[in-house]
Write a protein that binds this DNA or RNA. Structure first.
Ligand SMILES: [Mn+2]
Ligand SMILES: [Mn+2]
Ligand SMILES: [Mn+2]
Ligand SMILES: [Mn+2]
Lengths: 220, 220
DNA sequence: CTATTTTTTTAGTTTTGTCTAAAATTATTT
DNA sequence: AAATAATTTTAGACAAAACTAAAAAAATAG
């Protein structure tokens, strides 16, 4: 497998994540995700097309080819293994690991990553509950669902929070919700899509729809 | 402390190492070390001068400023900590670690490196016996000396080999010399600067000057 | 079905780091 | 000390990755 620049890798990974949700990815979407300008995206899409990582016809949006998906899974493997290493071995907290892994993921030495995987005991998920692809690029289907999608009276373990702003962290701290917290959904209100949840035997409390949309749990 | 590009860091580190030996470093020396062209070196020297990392007057060679030395020690700290991690935790052999550390050293997140240092138990030397600068950039003086500089009948522990070619490794393997081997110098010959050495109680054997110049030991 | 708005692409620059070829400077011989 | 050789710098070009402004295409509204 060839080697790609840091910039190319960041584009490839972003496309991979966006196409999970949207099928085909658009120029503006990707520019927004990578905090760059649409013109820069178009330039890179031409490059990735030449390298056969991308299906792209002008104005038609883009998807990764099979080869592109393989490359993306390699980057995600490196990212998540480093996240696990940082949290588990270096005792970083779960909200600090992403930024550092964003750089470490670009050191692409196969032996390094496979030995790291072994050293870590072949972990199945990263500190956010996302599955780690194996050495062949195989990845389990994520069991994470959004809090808004949970059935009533079922318990889920908080595994990740999509927004990483300090505002959401402040609110989560106030509500005593952290990664690992067990939440039970007791009621949902049609009017504003707010919900009441419980932690263990404590009294139920209310969560707004905006907050619930950003909380993901591993269910039963 | 500011952030520098991978390319800048590679130049800074190379100057640091060359000036240990030579006092002031020349354009050709550095070009040769970094496998680049003299014109590229001159360009970069101008940049590093503007950033006040370098004392440089055209045609006069260059030296790092105090600030430049500090930056270099930070890079060397990262490099050697990663080398230690690769050898000690991931079980890389001593001749494989350098190449990977050459990339990892450019991920410059202070917390990452200080936590890594702690995780590793604050090691004092890397797998080649070279001292690791502490978080403040303090570094012990290396006790490594060249095999050619050893006194007769003293024992030294092989700690590094400056050449890393497969040719030298083949020869070292044949002579049963590895990192950690205890060598005793028994005789030196003026004619070709070859020497006779012993490993433990085994019979003495001959080492050429070219080979001896590339072997470094920690003595008593 | 036009007209307007939004999205995307193109054209032309900029910055960083590299290179080759030529010019300038310094070092070494004779 | 002048000629020659070696080293270093400059000038000009190029590739990667970004940007701004303008043009082109697609989507949406009236
Ligand atoms: Mn990244
Ligand atoms: Mn993650
Ligand atoms: Mn390096
Ligand atoms: Mn080393």
């Amino acid at each position: 497998m060839l080697n790609y620049s840091t910039s190319e890798e960041n584009y490839i990974k972003a496309i991979f994540h966006l196409q999970r949700q949207d099928g085909t990815v658009t120029t503006n979407e990707l520019a927004n995700e990578l905090k760059t300008k649409p013109a820069s995206v178009t330039d890179m899409m031409k490059k990735l097309k030449v390298k056969k990582l991308l299906n792209y016809q002008p104005y038609q949006g883009f998807r990764l080819t099979n080869e592109g998906n393989k490359v993306a899974l390699g980057i995600i493997r490196r990212h998540r293994l480093w996240e696990y290493f940082l949290a588990e071995k270096l005792k970083f907290s779960w909200d600090e690991v992403h930024e550092v892994a964003e750089e470490l993921e670009h050191v692409s030495n196969k032996k390094l990553i496979d030995k790291l995987d072994e050293f870590l005991g072949f972990p199945r998920t990263d500190p956010h509950g996302d599955p780690i692809p194996d050495a062949n690029g195989k990845i389990e289907i994520s069991k994470k669902i959004c809090l808004t999608a949970m059935a009533l009276n079922t318990i889920g373990v908080v595994s990740s929070v999509s927004d990483q702003s300090s505002e959401i962290l402040e609110l989560l701290e106030h509500k005593k919700i952290a990664i690992g917290t067990k939440l039970e959904v007791k009621k949902k209100f049609e009017f504003d899509n707010s919900m009441e949840v419980k932690i263990g035997r404590q009294p139920a409390f209310t969560i707004s729809n905006q907050l619930a949309e950003n909380i993901f749990v591993l269910s039963n």
